[in-house]
Design a protein around this nucleic acid. Structure first.
Lengths: 142, 142
DNA sequence: CCGGATCCGTTTCGATACTG
DNA sequence: CAGTATCGAAACGGATCCGG
């Protein structure tokens, strides 16, 4: 299969990644819901098709925003883990959630997993750092 | 023509807008380059096709992220102006630019209009406020 | 069952030509 | 200049298949 994406054109990388509904959903659910397996993602509320999911995971691997590992206790299961580069997208995700909450009052359930919102608005910077540190503690055990 | 977008589903609004390469490009160029006319957008570096541009402007109007006006001194020319809701996306854009600069070193010209980067990294919050205030001063004259 | 890959009809994109 | 129409190409996404 040909690449469906153009890593050969780095100047548009940021928009390939963030300017795409599905990569954004995947990254958001990794950070906020700690999704890790193919199954986790394919069962998410946003109902991504498996072929699309597959193509996006490849793209994110290619960009080194995530990496692929085996579960230490279950060598069968593949898991996808955010790299530092991927975790660095946390501020973008959080700002998007804050915007969504403030400006799309009707319904923002897609972007808001919990009642963490107050905490976010209270001190955004520490909330972001906390998310990143918690993520690393849970998933970066080597 | 049928609507190409589904405003009937507000729960995915944020991703319709930000999870789309072109709406993101349009908003970014409004904030950073003060693009205002159809021509401005269609001549931007990213080379958006006129039909796509047209559909995205309609979508952004529908979401009230921009509004359409006539130039006061030239009743012929349509201009598109960010609303408050649209301007509230500035933090998302800026965070994306910062991420792009820090993590896609190869080439980030698409997202970086000027050498304002140092200023951003120095004090992000005031830079964002400044961008928004400047935008209003230039475009919100009634 | 899980992690995908393949197939295939439908939708959307996007380059260009065209119109008022 | 500000869009709209056209049309082939690409992407989507539901269903299905398949190896482990």
């Amino acid at each position: 299969m040909q690449n469906q994406f153009r890593c050969s054109c780095p100047c548009t990388s940021a928009l390939d990644i963030v300017g795409d509904k599905w990569t954004l959903v995947i990254i958001k659910d990794m950070i906020l819901l700690n999704n890790r397996t193919f199954k986790d993602f394919s069962e998410s509320d946003e109902a991504i098709a498996t072929n699309i999911l597959s193509s996006r995971l490849k793209m994110l691997l290619e960009y080194e925003i995530i990496r692929k590992e085996k579960l230490p206790d279950n060598k069968q299961k593949n898991i996808y883990i955010l790299t530092q580069k991927g975790l660095n997208l946390t501020p973008v995700i959080i700002d998007l959630i804050i915007w969504s909450d403030g400006n799309l009052r009707e319904n923002h359930s897609t972007l808001l997993p919990t009642a963490q919102l107050d905490s976010v608005k209270n001190d955004k910077e520490s909330f972001i750092s906390m998310l990143i540190e918690n993520y690393k503690k849970r998933n970066w055990k080597r």
